[in-house]
Amino acid sequence: MTKLEKLLSQYAAYHLDHKNIYTHFVGIPMIVFSIICLTARAGVMVSGFELTLALLLIVLSVIYYLSLDRIFGVIMLVLFSVAYPFAYKIAQWDTVTWLSASVGIFVVGWVFQFVGHYYEKKKPAFVDDLIGLAIGPLFVLAEFVFLLGFRKDIQQRMLVEARKQRAEMDLKTMHTASGQ
């Protein structure tokens, strides 16, 4: 099992209900976009180009995603390249409007997340492992790619491992609830 498959499996163990996955298709992009909006305002000018905290986060994220999988990493780079100019424009709005829009998008994104986890009957993955915050966007991309019929081999290995992990989590919860 590759590192990508291991990380996706760990995340998928908290996301086996399709309603939860579908809410994540909306919630995670909103949260990521809002973070880009919030961090696109902090920057320094270098040779007439503004290097923002958002760009730094994007570069670090893409490097990480590329280290896990070239195809997914390149797709994430394309998605970030499309999103960043819009987020940067929002960051140029007056402070109240920029902050209201960015925080509003963030909050609505998390509402979608928590609605999904209501259906799943599981807490979000990042509660147990903060790497889930970085893997969430990659998981949503992978799930979309799987829906399109691609990379089914990765999906199959991920799901087998995720179901095993989920069964272990459920067993542990049952033991905890019964006081054993």
Rank of each mutant, 00 (worst) to 15 (best):
residue 77 L to W: 03
residue 50 E to Y: 00
residue 7 L to A: 05
residue 47 S to W: 09
residue 168 E to I: 07
residue 149 G to P: 10
residue 16 L to N: 09
residue 122 K to M: 15
residue 177 A to S: 12
residue 174 M to R: 15
residue 108 V to H: 04
residue 19 K to E: 08
residue 114 F to M: 14
residue 48 G to H: 02
residue 83 A to F: 08
residue 115 V to M: 11
residue 138 L to N: 05
residue 167 A to R: 13
residue 151 R to G: 09
residue 170 D to I: 13
residue 46 V to H: 00
residue 59 V to S: 05
residue 70 R to M: 13
residue 87 A to R: 01
residue 158 M to N: 09
residue 120 E to D: 08
residue 141 L to F: 08
residue 38 L to Q: 02
residue 155 Q to N: 11
residue 116 G to C: 13
residue 97 T to E: 08
residue 114 F to N: 13
residue 39 T to N: 09
residue 75 I to T: 07
residue 3 K to V: 10
residue 83 A to S: 14
residue 143 E to N: 10
residue 93 W to N: 07
residue 134 A to T: 10
residue 12 A to L: 02
residue 159 L to V: 14
residue 64 Y to F: 15
residue 34 S to T: 05
residue 178 S to C: 01
residue 129 D to L: 09
residue 133 L to T: 08
residue 175 H to Y: 13
residue 140 V to T: 08
residue 25 F to D: 03
residue 98 W to D: 01
residue 123 K to P: 01
residue 87 A to M: 06
residue 82 V to K: 05
residue 79 L to I: 14
residue 111 V to L: 15
residue 65 Y to H: 05
residue 126 F to L: 14
residue 155 Q to K: 15
residue 179 G to Q: 06
residue 170 D to Y: 02
residue 103 V to T: 05
residue 100 S to P: 01
residue 46 V to K: 06
residue 16 L to K: 03
residue 55 L to T: 00
residue 160 V to M: 06
residue 133 L to G: 04
residue 111 V to F: 14
residue 85 P to T: 04
residue 73 G to T: 03
residue 136 G to E: 07
residue 22 Y to C: 06
residue 100 S to Q: 11
residue 141 L to R: 01
residue 122 K to A: 13
residue 177 A to N: 09
residue 143 E to S: 14
residue 38 L to R: 00
residue 99 L to D: 04
residue 62 V to H: 04
residue 103 V to N: 09
residue 111 V to T: 11
residue 64 Y to L: 10
residue 89 K to A: 10
residue 100 S to A: 15
residue 61 S to H: 11
residue 62 V to R: 08
residue 119 Y to I: 04
residue 173 T to H: 05
residue 13 A to R: 02
residue 21 I to W: 03
residue 173 T to M: 13
residue 85 P to Y: 05
residue 101 A to T: 15
residue 40 A to G: 15
residue 172 K to W: 07
residue 103 V to Q: 04
residue 10 Q to L: 10
residue 18 H to W: 11
residue 98 W to H: 15
residue 28 I to W: 02
residue 110 W to M: 09
residue 151 R to F: 11
residue 52 T to A: 00
residue 112 F to I: 08
residue 68 L to F: 05
residue 52 T to I: 01
residue 110 W to G: 03
residue 34 S to I: 04
residue 49 F to D: 00
residue 108 V to A: 12
residue 12 A to N: 02
residue 138 L to P: 02
residue 113 Q to H: 14
residue 127 V to L: 15
residue 141 L to Q: 06
residue 156 Q to K: 15
residue 129 D to T: 07
residue 78 V to N: 05
residue 95 T to C: 00
residue 4 L to I: 08
residue 14 Y to R: 03
residue 64 Y to P: 00
residue 50 E to A: 08
residue 100 S to G: 14
residue 177 A to M: 13
residue 180 Q to A: 10
residue 57 L to D: 00
residue 99 L to F: 14
residue 11 Y to E: 02
residue 82 V to A: 12
residue 170 D to P: 03
residue 39 T to A: 12
residue 104 G to R: 07
residue 178 S to T: 10
residue 56 L to P: 01
residue 130 L to N: 12
residue 106 F to R: 07
residue 152 K to N: 14
residue 150 F to R: 13
residue 91 A to T: 07
residue 85 P to H: 06
residue 18 H to C: 00
